[in-house]
Simulated scan of single mutants.
Amino acid sequence: MGERNPRFDRFFDRDTPWKAEKKRLREIVLDHPLTEELKWRQPVYCHAGGNVATIDGLKDRCVLSFFKGALLTDPEGMLEPPGPNSRSARYAPFTSLEEIDARADALHAYLDEAIENEKRGLSPEMPPDDLDLPEELAAALDADPALAEAWAALTPGRRRGWVIHVSGAKQAKTRTARVEKAAPRIRDGKGFHDR
């Protein structure tokens, strides 16, 4: 039913941790009307041009991630935010094929709901960003009008990523160095996670 991209067969056949689990998740995902596309150097499953899900192997688990997972009803209570600063994404973690197979029906339901949400053009409501600009970033934006203009043109998520990255440094000199290193990428319209 899904549009399998043969280029990704090698990706899933590589001898990596969680190989069997990732292949099983791929089978489940491709039971749905999704296309398999290359984004961020990994397969992303899309519907009508919108990103729906991705599969990843982490150190201690394999996950099926939903880009707009915060919209999902999650009756099984199995979705988790990938990190403390996650606003929209949610993932279902697994540590075995048996666990994936036991929850396959729930995964199919989550995928159906995610696709329906994409068809309807839904996006999670994001509360106003509650992150304050680090002093060093605010000073750099005040001193450089071109950088400030580029900053204003970034998406809220990209700005949030930079704020979290710069704020994560404990020392002022490290925050300043991060701002200096980030400035060219900000001018190019890139977020912290963009390549």
Rank of each mutant, 00 (worst) to 15 (best):
Gly2Ala: 14
Asn5Tyr: 04
Pro6Gln: 06
Phe8Ser: 04
Phe8Lys: 06
Arg10Trp: 03
Arg10Val: 13
Thr16Gly: 00
Glu21Tyr: 06
Arg24Asp: 01
Leu25Ala: 00
Ile28Asp: 01
Leu30Ile: 04
Pro33Phe: 01
Thr35Ile: 05
Thr35Cys: 02
Leu38Val: 05
Gln42Phe: 00
Gly49His: 05
Ile55Gln: 04
Asp56Val: 14
Asp56Met: 08
Arg61Asn: 11
Ser65Lys: 00
Ala70Glu: 15
Ala70Leu: 11
Leu71Asn: 04
Asp74Pro: 04
Asp74Gln: 03
Glu80Asp: 03
Gly83Ala: 11
Asn85Met: 03
Arg87Ile: 13
Ala89Val: 15
Arg90Ser: 06
Glu99Tyr: 00
Ile100Ser: 03
His108Thr: 07
His108Glu: 08
Glu113Phe: 08
Glu116Ser: 10
Glu116Cys: 00
Glu116Leu: 12
Ser123Phe: 05
Leu131Ala: 09
Leu133Asp: 06
Glu135Phe: 01
Glu136Trp: 01
Leu137Ser: 02
Ala140Pro: 09
Trp151Tyr: 08
Ala152Ser: 13
Leu154Tyr: 09
Pro156Glu: 12
Gly157Glu: 09
Arg158Asp: 11
Arg160Glu: 03
Arg160Val: 09
Gly161Asp: 05
Ile164Ala: 11
Lys173Gly: 00
Arg175Ala: 05
Arg175Lys: 15
Ala183Phe: 05
Ala183Ser: 15
Ala183Asn: 08
Ile186Trp: 00
Gly189Cys: 06
His193Ile: 03
